[in-house]
Design a protein around this nucleic acid. Structure first.
Lengths: 348, 348
DNA sequence: GTGAAAGCGCTAACAC
DNA sequence: GTGTTAGCGCTTTCAC
């Protein structure tokens, strides 16, 4: 693991017998240099194993070709798709992906965002624990795209799981259910609020009684409480905040000897890895998470590559600088109900 | 998403009425500056929201406080633990984690490593697709720690899944199995070779017949072929290269109406998310992947923070520079067999 | 204890 | 078409 000194542009220029500026041009804009010279420089650079210093470029241009994905918990399988989607899109454009875990803490998130400023060109902020205001403020210092959040003036991508849950409710009604529980997620969750706001009017419209249970931490272990509460509440079906919670519910029902779907129909949300592995397989709401990630990265890159076309730098001293046209509404991605074995007719 | 101009050290110095050098000292080494002055500078810096430029620091020191995790496929749940483990350890030391997906391609991996040089202080290389030589060469230009690989001179962390598989074999023998299949992984996999080399002598020692099936791509869909082959081979138990493959095997057996473990005992490997969710739950080999990641990051950081104690920079012009004492053997982490429902007595 | 100045590697004026 | 020069933001001599 010895470390060899990297050749610099100066080394290349010297070896090729040209000035650094010529070497620089030859490597970045070959058109503006004598073809023969350019070839020679390129050859020498290759031979020496020259790699331009990212730090020097960054210092000069203010651009790092790096984008961060900020999320509350890398552990949560739901976010894996986001990692993949953003990563794939970023790689396509030659960007480097940085991963930041905020450990479900608003404080850590704020601090992370602060430190990221200057280190990255922008960030995709997923399931943020911050307030709208805090995000808006952070967006002043760092190009931001939010996922599952609406912040006026900040581009965003929304997964319409609320819509998916309404589909689930309709499905249950068709199956004859008239009293359905919703096992709620954390009160701090923006998505949870959105879902409740969608479920309540839908329930009224469909003439079904909706019982809200919880809130529950969106993890498997909370499933036991949720299952018990559902049984106590005398519902025939339960829609869970997410699949992890639904897995826990299934486990508990199994342990208590309650058959699914005969004793209780169960619906999850997100279609994470494993939802088709459990028995009975879980009826759930498929979210195009990976696509959302790709989209978020795309929005950010569009922003970034429009922003400073070529290292522009204003010398205005009034502090404030660029103000860009902001895309109106966030992108809303539809979700889809996947019916599997965990839901069935209501037992009268 | 406007972007405000960041205050620089010069701004801070000016506002505090001191020279940049003093401001720099006040912020980095408060001891070497008049207490009052230092306080003032710090206060001003805070007020202005000053954040030191990472690029400038990197340019000057050659250190980026960034480490990359390079892996063949972010999609594979097996690597999630690695992402977590390395990420957690890096964060603890204030390092930033960069994620690089090489898409299972040696070429992409080589290119990634090349580009990473200079962008990061080091990298954790997991399940590399490169040859030993290629890795050794890459290690000359970038501080590297390998996971599940032994490269002389390069620190590494090994998960002893081969040992776990021997445990599995012993367990099966105790249950009366005398003819057992191993569903092999990709031929390019270093781990697969290691496991075979451990299983064969173990089988001989235990007096059990070992049938090697495959190779199979380590994904769920390959499970169908593996299950069929096992049934054809007339074995009573099968050990799969990994859990994904085992899941596929279970699905196929279910589809063919073969009971598990009565008709066939199934063992997976890695204990990934979902292995206790399937029915019957999967007997598998638990690997401390997260711990391995943490360890790998730890080895790297130790290396890094010993390497250039404080931005040292040699002016030797002979090209070659540092050569460090290399830790001898790689760290070997033990694995453990977890017996669940998918294995049982051999049906005579 | 503090300031002035050099320089990390690179690109973008500005000469010639 | 090519060389010279300035300067990105910072740390670190070297004077004072």
């Amino acid at each position: 693991m010895a470390v060899r000194r990297q050749p610099t542009l100066r080394d290349v220029a010297a070896a090729a017998g040209v000035a650094v500026s010529t070497a620089s041009r030859a490597l970045t804009r070959p058109g503006r240099v004598n073809a023969g010279t350019a070839d020679r420089v390129v050859a020498v650079a290759k031979e020496l194993g020259y790699i331009p210093s990212a730090s020097a470029r960054a210092l000069l241009s203010g651009r790092t070709a790096t984008v961060a994905l900020v999320l509350p918990d890398v552990t949560n399988p739901f976010f894996f798709g986001l990692v993949r989607g953003t990563g794939a899109r970023l790689r396509e454009s030659g960007y480097v992906q940085v991963l930041a875990d905020t450990e479900e803490s608003a404080e850590v998130e704020l601090d992370t965002l602060r430190k990221l400023r200057g280190q990255v060109d922008g960030a995709v902020l997923a399931a943020s624990r911050l307030t709208d205001d805090q995000i808006a403020v952070a967006a002043e210092d760092l190009a931001l795209v939010v996922v599952n959040r609406t912040i006026p003036g900040t581009p965003g991508v929304l997964l319409d799981t609320a819509g998916g849950m309404v589909q689930a409710l309709e499905h249950l009604v068709e199956q004859g259910h008239t009293r359905v529980a919703y096992a709620a997620g954390p009160t701090t969750s923006w998505s949870d609020r959105r879902r409740r706001e969608a479920l309540e009017p839908a329930a009224a419209r469909l003439g079904v009684e909706l019982v809200v249970l919880g809130p529950y931490a969106p993890v498997r272990t909370s499933g036991a409480d949720a299952a018990d509460a559902a049984l106590d509440a005398g519902v025939t079906a339960i829609v869970a905040f997410n699949d992890l919670l639904a897995f826990g519910i299934l486990e508990r029902l199994d342990a208590r000897g309650v058959a699914v779907p005969e004793g209780l129909s169960v619906v999850g949300c997100d279609d994470i890895f494993g939802s088709d592995l459990v028995r009975p397989a879980l009826t759930t709401i498929e979210s195009p998470v990976e696509r959302a990630g790709r989209m978020a990265a795309d929005l950010l890159l569009t922003r970034l590559d429009g922003e400073r076309p070529a290292g522009g730098d204003d010398e205005d001293d009034d502090g404030l600088v660029v103000d860009l046209p902001v895309p109106g509404a966030p992108v809303l991605l539809p979700t889809r109900l996947i019916v599997r074995g965990s839901t069935g007719s209501a037992q009268v």
